[in-house]
């Protein structure tokens, strides 16, 4: 009985440690609107120093444990919610003109998950991987719309003005982020 209690407390220690370290590593995930007061900057600097105390091996094992047990960063919409990010497709064909289309998800849940995919696309730093992702999306749009030969993937932010700016007449607008143009070879 005593051994079981000690083992359970050891499990609790490892579990809580994993939650804390995973969150210290992943603190402050959305860095687009990076305007922090000095106190916040100092707090983050201290947290970074704390995580630096742990070796890469410890961090690796912790992340492996976290991935099996569903532990993740808990900074939802923190510290400031990012602007919405979306992708549209401009499909063109000589005889059919131009059509602007959204991604091909049917369900509400599918559309919610598509938002995660867009954010992944936005945050992918490796240009080769990003190109592959863009190609995959464009190819899927071509499969669904085979008569269009030019496919332009347009990623954009949806900028919401502040409440004050909104009262002064400004309205939300799309700001272009990246464009990928694909021309489908009709005779591959």
């Amino acid at each position: 009985m005593k051994t079981k209690k000690i083992l359970l407390l050891a499990f609790l220690f490892i579990h809580v440690f994993s939650i804390l370290l995973t969150n210290l590593i992943g603190v402050y995930p959305f860095r687009e609107k990076l305007e922090l007061r000095e106190a916040s900057e100092n707090t983050l600097a201290v947290l970074e120093k704390v995580t630096d105390c742990f070796s890469t091996e410890v961090k690796g094992v912790t992340q492996w444990y976290a991935s099996l047990t569903g532990i993740t960063g808990y900074g939802f919409f923190s510290p400031d919610p990012p602007y919405s990010y979306t992708i549209y497709f401009k499909l063109e064909a000589e005889d059919q003109g131009t059509s602007i289309q959204e991604s091909p998800f049917l369900s509400t849940e599918g559309k919610s998950r598509m938002t995660s995919a867009f954010n992944q696309f936005k945050e992918t730093k490796n240009e080769d991987v990003k190109n592959l992702m863009a190609q995959s999306m464009a190819l899927r749009m071509h499969q669904l719309n085979p008569s269009y030969s030019n496919i332009d993937l347009m990623s954009m932010f949806y900028i919401v003005p502040s409440m004050k700016e909104y009262r002064q007449g400004e309205r939300p607008y799309y700001a272009s982020h990246e464009n990928y143009e694909f021309i489908i070879d009709p005779n591959p």
Binding site: V27, R37, S40, G75, S78, P79, S84, V160, S162, M163
Partner: peptide, 27 residues
């Protein structure tokens, strides 16, 4: 942790976080 992260920024203190999220495209 979630509250602590939010408190580091400005937007949750001045209400802009609620405004931006609810006026955004995704939510």
């Amino acid at each position: 942790i979630s509250g602590f992260d939010k408190a580091l920024g400005y937007d949750w203190w001045n209400g802009e976080a609620i405004w931006t999220t609810m006026m955004g495209l995704n939510f």
